[in-house]
Amino acid sequence: MTPIQYFFLFTAGFTLLAALGVVTRRNVVHSALLLVVALFGVAVTFAILEAGFWAVFQVLVYIGAIAILMIFMVMLTRRNVADETYPEPFNDNMRLAFLAALLVFGGLALTIGGWDAARETMTVPLDYDALREFGRAMVSPDGYLVPFILVSVLLLAALVGAIYVAVLGNKSQEERE
């Protein structure tokens, strides 16, 4: 066991504990805050994998935008601010859901168990600028220009749709009533 392996196990441990907290905590605000911890653990994993760009991106996009949006929404949709009791967090299918998650993990673990161990080591040292190559590929027609544009259009459409649903859709609904 090398120090980096201990560090990875520590990171994975606190990420998984935080993720368990996200899905089991009664108070959804606690879930949202634990989600920040879990997302940060994933960012650390990216850093261990020598993908520093994605580690920074994870902190900026997931923690800085998505998790904060989640916390805002949890606070905006509380039925009664003075109410300190929280409803039962799980629905009636909780046992079935647990079984399904366990089965999925079992299948994944079996697949990983049959993995060819010879391919498990890093063969090539990372001696080139992956970010620069990625940036070039993203704007070249031979690379990923079309997927890049598709993804951009998807994000734009989703954001316009989100604004419509959250603001304008409600306005027309209120006018109808």
């Binding site: 990420t15 998984l16 993720a19 799980f90 629905n91 859901a97």
Partner: peptide
């Protein structure tokens, strides 16, 4: 795989 399964449980079981 563990993270995925935990997330799946959350999706299926949470209210």
């Amino acid at each position: 795989a563990l993270l995925f399964s935990i997330g799946l449980f959350g999706v299926l079981a949470r209210k």
